[in-house]
Structures are given as structure tokens and as C-alpha cells.
């Protein structure tokens, strides 16, 4: 564990908690893409199956359980409890156009052709594009609530910090995982446009459609 990875995990946890609290407190999921949240729940489910097979550390296990729990709680709030506030007209990104290519690629490019490894690879590739429905929704509505922009900022920063973590691990441990690194670079690049707006526009972020 290094400072970049810990900071990244805490930023990721902050993003997940911010979103869950925002929906719960305002009792509304307006401006939130339910499709992105479904993709994140799928990412955590396919990536953390090793909860059943291997124990790495208490920290690792606790964080995985929290991530999975919050992801499904968020999906539940969006599609069940606060369904009436769900912005279905703008949340129209075809996620099958993400899942199918990512699924195919995870069969073609992976470290090991075993079920757990292919599912892990699928989750890594999927996570790199999972935010697209959310960015698409914001570009369609033309604006995002301030709290949503903070959520997106933390979510974007988490994988950017992981990039530094991988540089650190390569330099000090000689460890590197090309699949995670390439997907992490793609994921962070997708946020760049948003980062620019978040920093320059301060409060109201309007991504030009």
C-alpha cells in the first residue's frame, strides 16, 4: 500500500458516499445517470468475486463490501425508492454498446483465460467507460448540480491517483499490470474534459453538448 493508492481509495469511497448521501438527503436522483450506477454495480460485482475465494487484508475485504453495498443501495434508490425523480428522458445512453465490446475484449485480451480472471478483466475495461452515460446525461441537460460535480471530481481523481500508484509500484516493486494501467489511462482521459470545466467553471458545470 502506498499514499497514492490509499488517497485513491479514499477519494473513491468519498465519491460513492457523496452520491449516496446526495440522493438520500435530497430524496431525488435528478441529474444522476442510473445507467452509470448499474455499470458500477456490475463492475464491483465482477471484480470482487474473489471475496469468496481469497483474503488479502481486512482493509481490502471491508472496502470491497462497502463498495458493493453502496453501489447496490444507490441503484435501489434510483430505480425503486426515488424512481419518480429519475430522469429517464435524458439517461438514454445505450449501455449495451459498452457491455458487449468490453465483454468481447475481456475474452481477447487478458492475463489468464480463467473465469475469475476474465471477469476481473471485464470489470477493469467496463469501469474505464462506466461514467460515459453520466457524462452523456450532463451534456444533454447542459448542467450538473454542484454536489454531482464534486461526486464526479472525486471519482475522476481516484483513478488518476491510481496511475501514480502504478508508477510508484513499478519503480519500487517492479510490479505493473498493463491491462489496469491502459484502462486507467483511458478512464482518466474521459474525465479530462469534465476536470477542465470543474476547475474553470467552479460552481455550475455546463458540458457543451
Amino acid at each position: 500500500m502506498n499514499i497514492f493508492r490509499l488517497a485513491g481509495d479514499l477519494s473513491h469511497l468519498a465519491a460513492i458516499i457523496i452520491l449516496l448521501l446526495k440522493i438520500w438527503k435530497t430524496r431525488s436522483c435528478a441529474g444522476i445517470s442510473g445507467k452509470s450506477q448499474i455499470l458500477f454495480a456490475l463492475v464491483f460485482t465482477t471484480r470482487y468475486l474473489d471475496l469468496l475465494t481469497s483474503f488479502i487484508s481486512l482493509y481490502n475485504t471491508c472496502m470491497k463490501i462497502i463498495y458493493i453495498g453502496c453501489a447496490y443501495a444507490t441503484v435501489h434508490l434510483i430505480y425503486m425508492k426515488f424512481k419518480a425523480t429519475y430522469d429517464g428522458n435524458h439517461d438514454t445512453f445505450r449501455i449495451e454498446f459498452l457491455i458487449v465490446p468490453v465483454g468481447g475484449l475481456s475474452f481477447l485480451v487478458n492475463h489468464d483465460f480463467s473465469p475469475l480472471e476474465i471477469l476481473w478483466t471485464f470489470s477493469i475495461y467496463l469501469e474505464s467507460v462506466a461514467i460515459l452515460p453520466q457524462l452523456f446525461l450532463i451534456s444533454k441537460t447542459g448542467e450538473a448540480e454542484t454536489i454531482t460535480t464534486h461526486y464526479l471530481f472525486c471519482l475522476g481523481v481516484y483513478r488518476a491517483l491510481y496511475l501514480f500508484n502504478w508508477i510508484w509500484r513499478f519503480y519500487f516493486e517492479g510490479f505493473f499490470d498493463m491491462i489496469a494501467i491502459v484502462a486507467g489511462v483511458v478512464q482518466t482521459i474521459l474525465y479530462c474534459d469534465f476536470f477542465y470545466l470543474y476547475v474553470t467553471k467552479g460552481e455550475k458545470v455546463a458540458i457543451p453538448s
Binding site: H12, S54, D112, A180
Partner: peptide, 10 residues
């Protein structure tokens, strides 16, 4: 490839 298969990151 075994070190890559033990994924210790979240």
C-alpha cells in the same frame, strides 16, 4: 502471470 492474477488492489 501469477503475480498479475492475485489482484490486491480495489
Amino acid at each position: 502471470a501469477d503475480e498479475a492474477s492475485t489482484h490486491d488492489e480495489l
